[in-house]
Design a protein around this nucleic acid. Structure first.
Lengths: 339, 339
DNA sequence: TTGAAAGCGCTACCAA
DNA sequence: TTGGTAGCGCTTTCAA
C-alpha cells in the first residue's frame, strides 16, 4: 500500500504566495489582527484551512521568546495522590492551551540535566508537585527568569506555591479523634522528607495534646504503603496499644490498616485509623478511611493561574496560597456516642 | 533581597565573539567535530562552561527539523498500570535524552487539538499507551511522517506496537486454575473497549474449555475497581457459585476480591481470584493476587527503540512486537494438592 | 582547520 | 490596510 504523498507542510510563506500577499499580512490575518480587512482575513483563513496549515510553535518561540511549554515534576507512583494530580493538571491545561513537558516522574530528586532541559527547551515556567528542587536548580530557574510554582509544597526561595492548610488539617483530625473518645494516638509520619508531613503532624500533635490526648508512639511511614504496613504491624504489637492512628497520608494509612487487620484487630472497634489527602482508593468500601481532603481542583487552578500570571508579568511578586481542606469522616474512625 | 542580575543567555554568537572565532566554528567545536583543532575545541568548551551556555533546543529544531520531543498518551489513573508505565517511560527516556510532552492523560479519547499540538510542536514521534487513536488522528500522523508506537496495544494502521502475548497469558492462567482443580469460572472482561481484554479473555476461555472447564458467567468490569467490585457482588450472589474468577486486569480483580470478601467468602478457600498485569498493588499481602506479569521494562525499552529507529529512518517498516509474560502464582488461587 | 552566508518559520518594527 | 526587512539561535553547505 502506498503511503500518502507526504506533501511538505504549509507555512506562512507558502500561504502568502498562494494568496498573493506578503507574509506579514498572512501572519497578522491568522491571529485576527483588526488592521487586516475582514475580507482578506476570511480569504486567508480559508486558504489556511484548505492547506491544512498549522503554525510551527517552535519557530514562533524563536521570535516571540515564549514557547507555551511548561515543565512538570511529578512524585512517585507509589503514592496515588500524584496520579490524581497529574490528571487534574492535564485536564485543566487543555483549556488553557498549556503544554506540559515531563521533567521528572518518580522518587528521587530532580537531576541537574533535568533543569537544563528546562532552559534548552525555553520552557516558560515549571510546575512542581513533589520532590523539592535543589537550591541550585531553583537558582538556575530564578536567574533565567523561569517562574516556578509548587503545588502541595510550601514555598521556597524563588518559587510560588499552592498548598492546603496542612497544620489545620492535622488539628481538625485531632479534634475529630478526640471527639470520638480517643486519647492515645500513634502517629505515622514521613521522616522529615516533606514539609507537608511535618506540618500535618505538628498540627495534629498540638491539638491532640491540647485536647488532653497523648502521643503513644511515632513511626516513619516513608510515604509508601509498605512503610505504613510496617508501622501498623508494630502498633499492633505494642503493649499498651494506642486507640487511634493518625497517618500523614492515605497511602500510609492503607498500609497501616491492612497490617492492623492482619494482626487480628477490627477497625474501628479495636483501633481507629485516619489518613490525609482523601485519594479515591481511601474511599473504597474495603478501606473507608476517614481523611482530610485537599481541594485539588482549586489547588491546580490556582497553581496554573500563578504560573500564567507570572509568565505574563515576571515582575509580579511570588505568592503563597493556602487553601482550606475538608475533613471527610468515614468508617475507619469511631464516632462520638450519639446517645 | 536583590534578584541576581538576569544576564542574557549565552548563545553561539556571544561565544564566538568572546572567542574571536566564527559562529560555525563554535557550533562545530561544541559538538566535537574532528575538523576543529583540539586546542580550539577545549578553549571553546571552557568558554561555554564559564558562560553557562546551553544550546537552544528549539532553534536547533528549526534548522535541523528534529525536535527531540515526543508525544505521550497515557491512560486513566483509575488503573495504576498506567502510573507504572509512566514511571518506566520517564526513567528510560532520561538515558536517551528523549523528552515527553503530555498529549493526554486520563479516560476518554484523544482530542483533535491534541493531534494538532503534535504537529505544531514538531514532535518527532508519539507513544501511545492507552486510548485508541481515532483513525483521523492516525492519518494525520502518518501523512506528516510522525511515527506512532503503541505500548500495550495491538498495532493499528500506521503504527508500530509492543504488547505482551495476551491470549497466551489468558491461556496460562486457565491452565493454572484447571491444575488447581477449578472447573467453573466467572470472567470479568472490559466490555470490548480494549483489544487486550478481548485477547486475554479469548485465550483464557479457549484453554479453560479445552481443559474441561466451563464459563459460568461473564461480567463487564469496565476496567475500573468499581466495575470489578460490582461483578464480585453479583458472583457472590450466584446460585451455583463459580469456583474461580478470571479478571482481565488486576484493578478489576482487586474490586472483585473485596466484594467477594464483603459477601463473607474466603479467598481462595471458597473461590479463587486471578488477575492480569501484576501491578505492585496486587502483590500486597492484603490482596496477594495470582496474576500474569507483563515484562514492562522490556516493553518500554522496545517501544522506545521502535520510536527512535523509525525517527532516524522513516522508511523502516512498521513492526509489531509481542513479548511473553510470566504467570505469578500467589495466594489468591488454590494450588493443586501436592500429596 | 576555519569562515561566510543562507535558511529554518515566524514575529515585529518601520514604512508606505 | 498592507509590505519590506531584520532577526530570533542554530545548522549546514560552500569557500577559503
Amino acid at each position: 500500500m502506498e503511503l500518502p504523498p507526504r506533501r511538505p507542510r504549509a507555512t506562512i510563506l507558502t500561504l502568502s504566495r498562494s494568496a498573493g500577499v506578503s507574509a506579514s499580512t498572512v501572519s497578522r490575518a491568522l491571529k485576527g489582527d483588526p488592521r487586516i480587512s475582514k475580507s482578506m482575513r476570511s480569504r486567508i483563513a480559508e486558504l489556511a484551512r484548505d492547506a491544512g496549515y498549522l503554525p510551527n510553535a517552535l519557530a514562533r518561540t524563536l521570535s516571540s521568546g515564549r514557547s507555551g511549554l511548561l515543565g512538570l515534576v511529578l512524585g512517585p507512583r507509589s503514592n496515588p495522590f500524584y496520579a490524581t494530580l497529574l490528571e487534574e493538571v492535564v485536564a485543566q491545561s487543555a483549556d488553557r492551551s498549556l503544554r506540559f513537558l515531563i521533567l521528572h516522574a518518580g522518587p528521587g530528586p530532580i537531576e541537574d540535566r533535568t533543569t537544563e532541559a528546562l532552559l534548552q527547551y525555553q520552557m516558560d515556567g515549571c510546575l512542581i508537585t513533589s520532590a523539592d528542587m535543589s537550591s541550585r536548580a531553583a537558582e538556575i530557574c530564578a536567574s533565567n527568569g523561569v517562574p516556578v510554582v509548587m503545588i502541595n509544597r510550601v514555598p521556597r526561595l524563588h518559587a510560588s506555591a499552592v498548598s492546603c492548610d496542612n497544620a489545620e488539617g492535622g488539628a481538625r483530625m485531632a479534634e475529630h479523634l478526640l471527639a470520638g473518645g480517643h486519647r492515645r494516638a500513634a502517629v505515622i509520619h514521613t521522616g522529615g522528607a516533606s514539609s507537608n508531613g511535618i506540618d500535618r503532624e505538628r498540627g495534629f500533635t498540638e491539638a491532640f495534646l491540647a485536647g488532653g490526648g497523648h502521643i503513644a508512639a511515632r513511626f516513619d511511614g516513608r510515604s509508601i504503603y509498605e512503610g505504613g504496613h510496617d508501622a501498623g504491624r508494630q502498633i499492633a504489637a505494642m503493649d499498651a496499644r494506642p486507640d487511634c492512628v493518625f497517618a500523614v497520608s492515605d497511602i500510609i494509612a492503607m498500609g497501616a490498616m491492612d497490617a492492623l487487620r492482619e494482626a487480628g484487630l477490627a477497625i474501628p472497634r479495636d483501633i481507629s485509623v485516619s489518613g490525609f489527602d482523601s485519594i479515591p482508593e481511601a474511599a473504597r468500601a474495603a478501606y473507608d478511611i476517614t481523611s482530610f481532603e485537599q481541594p485539588l481542583t482549586t489547588m491546580v487552578r490556582r497553581g496554573l493561574d500563578l504560573l500564567t500570571d507570572r509568565i505574563a508579568d515576571p515582575s509580579l511578586p511570588e505568592e503563597a496560597i493556602t487553601l482550606r481542606g475538608t475533613l471527610i469522616a468515614r468508617g475507619s474512625t469511631r464516632r462520638p456516642a450519639t446517645s
